[in-house]
């Protein structure tokens, strides 16, 4: 059996770094790993999804509908978009950030009113946090991707030290302090259950 994690967000939010960190953590924890990334066109502000799968033997780099143990979501609409990929009993950890897509900006479509409520009404375990605020408090809003990993630390299935090591190995040197701080603050917040 493999553990399946999806990282979903908007191109430019730093989903690739998050997947790199999780892939590294999975390998250091001794698993076979497959990570599927998105490069190119969709990185330009489009909906992006990265798959991280690990276990004793993993073939496909892509996660099927109804098969994700955890969805790490950088933006609420993206949590709603990728919800069908969640396994029954799976967990979504989402940032409460809202980024309007172009059809909403032009008025061709509406951003759903209460995404968190809609998802909870389906009986899904969704944990929402203001990851941007945590990152800002740590020193830089751009560390919200690493903050989100901290927020999901408990459900990702790694020892916290394995995750910390992976963050340290993947985040560029000059940004490391802020990211480490964001990670630790976020992990603490998740532990004490101060979500939205």
């Amino acid at each position: 059996m493999s553990k399946n994690i999806m990282i979903v967000g908007v191109g430019g939010q730093g989903t690739l770094l998050a997947s790199k960190i999780l892939g590294r953590a999975a390998m250091n924890a001794g698993h076979d790993v497959k990570v599927s990334e998105v490069h190119g066109m969709s990185q330009r502000g489009g909906s992006v999804v990265t798959y991280v799968r690990f276990g004793s033997e993993v073939y496909s780099p892509v996660i099927c509908k109804g098969d994700a143990d955890v969805i790490l979501s950088f933006e609420m609409l993206e949590a709603a978009r990728w919800l069908p990929h969640l396994k029954p009993g799976g967990v979504i950890v989402t940032s409460t950030q809202q980024i309007n897509p172009m059809p909403v900006i032009t008025g061709a479509a509406e951003y759903p009113d209460d995404i968190l409520g809609d998802i909870r009404a389906l009986g899904v375990d969704i944990r929402a946090y203001d990851a941007v605020k945590i990152a800002e408090e740590a020193g830089n809003a751009r560390a919200s991707n690493v903050a989100l990993i901290g927020l999901a630390a408990e459900v990702l299935g790694f020892d916290i030290e394995v995750l910390r090591e992976a963050v340290a190995a993947c985040v560029p040197g000059k940004a490391l302090d802020v990211n480490m701080k964001a990670f630790d603050m976020a992990a603490e917040i998740a532990k004490t259950g101060k979500g939205n």
Binding site: V10, G11, G12, M41, S42, Q43, R44, G45, G46, S47, C64, K65, G66, D67, L77, E78, A80, R81, L83, P84, H85, L86, P88, P101, M102, P103, V104, A108, A109, E110, Y111, P112, D113, I115, D118, I119, L122, V124
Partner: peptide, 19 residues
């Protein structure tokens, strides 16, 4: 067929845009 759930409200698409 996979078993999955989705929200009732339509989810607007998010095509790539100029940065």
């Amino acid at each position: 067929e996979p078993s999955y759930c989705e929200i009732g409200a339509p989810v607007p698409g998010r095509p790539p845009v100029l940065c």
